[in-house]
């Protein structure tokens, strides 16, 4: 089999996953897209392992490890998404804007008044 086929399929899957990560609003959909990316990588690893006829089969071993890590990651990721949903009422990625800076966040007129305001904002973020 021409090596190009699995390689190109892997690339296209990866870029599809990339699009999903950047374009989807719901955090769980983002996680799905991340899974797509990981699987694309797995396909690449297996294809090259078979092509190279590796004695150690490192490609396949790494694929297994990737699968396991992906499983662990999805578990943790989902629990985080659930926590966020519980605290903020939605799991939309673009609602999570605590690190944002507004245009007038650091006014030069009254630094004493601005500093406590920023401190309370940070307190809310870490709660």
């Amino acid at each position: 089999m021409h090596l190009a086929y699995p390689a190109v399929l892997s690339v296209l899957l990866f870029c599809t996953g990339l699009y999903g990560v950047l374009a989807r609003r719901n955090a769980i959909l983002v996680l799905m897209s991340v899974e797509l990316m990981l699987n694309a990588v797995n396909l690449n690893l297996v294809a090259f392992d078979v092509w190279l006829r590796d004695a150690l089969h490192s490609g396949q071993a790494l694929t297994l490890f990737t699968i396991a890590i992906a499983a662990a990651e999805i578990g943790i990721g989902l629990s985080i998404v659930l926590m966020v949903y519980r605290n903020r009422g939605s799991s939309d990625v673009d609602r999570l804007r605590d690190t944002a800076e507004g245009p007038d966040d650091d006014s030069s007129d009254d630094p004493d008044a601005a500093a406590p305001a920023q401190r309370t904002q940070k307190a809310e973020a870490t709660a």
């Binding site: 950047l22 374009a23 999570l96 804007r97 690190t99």
Partner: peptide, 21 residues
């Protein structure tokens, strides 16, 4: 200039990752 730069700090992770990629 600071105000302009601050506008780039949207807090939206997707924007950050897009620009990075």
């Amino acid at each position: 200039l600071g105000v302009l730069v601050r506008r780039a700090q949207t807090g939206n992770v997707q924007t950050y990752v897009s620009v990075l990629l």
